[in-house]
Amino acid sequence: MIRDLFAIPRLTGKAWTVWQRNLDVFLKTWRVNLVPPFIEPFLYLIALGFGLGGFVGYIGDVPYIDFIAPAIVAVSIMNSAFFECTYGSYVRMYYGKTFDAIIATPVSIEEVIAGELLWGATRSMIYTGLMLPVLILFGVVDLPSSLLLIPFAFLGGLLFACIAMCFTAATPSIDALNYPSFLFITPMLLFSGTFFPITVLPPALQAFAYVVLPLTNVVSICRGITLTLFSPFMILNLAWIAIVTTVLFFLSVNLMKRRLIV
């Protein structure tokens, strides 16, 4: 039983046709999709960077606004993939019956879910690509190292897409998706080394944040990239993300299959 949930699903390139479908919809509604990632960094940088940053000044020898800039990217990576693969996927699965339509073709349910996950990751990457010019304009991120954020956003996005899809597979209704949004996403937004250094927390909580809160690892890597401060610790962060993503990728696909194929 449990073993089946972590079995490696059989996938082919057909998963990309599902990805392509979502990309087509995204491009069709580009006006509503492309504006938020431009506006979001402005709001954060002005309110927190200039507003709060004026009181805080420096964290270590890093200006506060430079400290939070990578966190804004990390939060956006989290939000865009997470909400795409919770509410977005749920609407496609339950209300649109899109998955039913697709599995009547040679595409399998495993490939549908894989396509959804890849799309969630892509969405994180697109958003990061759109935010980056704003951050560069403000001069709060280093170049050229910050360009690494774009490929990294795909990996980070895939992590949150897989987490989201597990919730989608388990949720009894769309309203119940509010629980992970408020009880998981919001605490991460606050306690993952985003707006204050994680080192101010007691050591036990720091360990908890690194082991249990995915965003902590994503913030850590984003910050290393934008400040060009590469440390060996980032390899641990990267390994954590790679392992958890792989396990949850299999788990979410199998959970969704169990939900949809009866």
Binding site: V25, G96, K97, T98, D100, A101, A104
Partner: peptide, 9 residues
């Protein structure tokens, strides 16, 4: 299928 599941977008 019995249900109309076209892509509304």
């Amino acid at each position: 299928p019995q249900e109309t599941n076209l892509d509304t977008e």
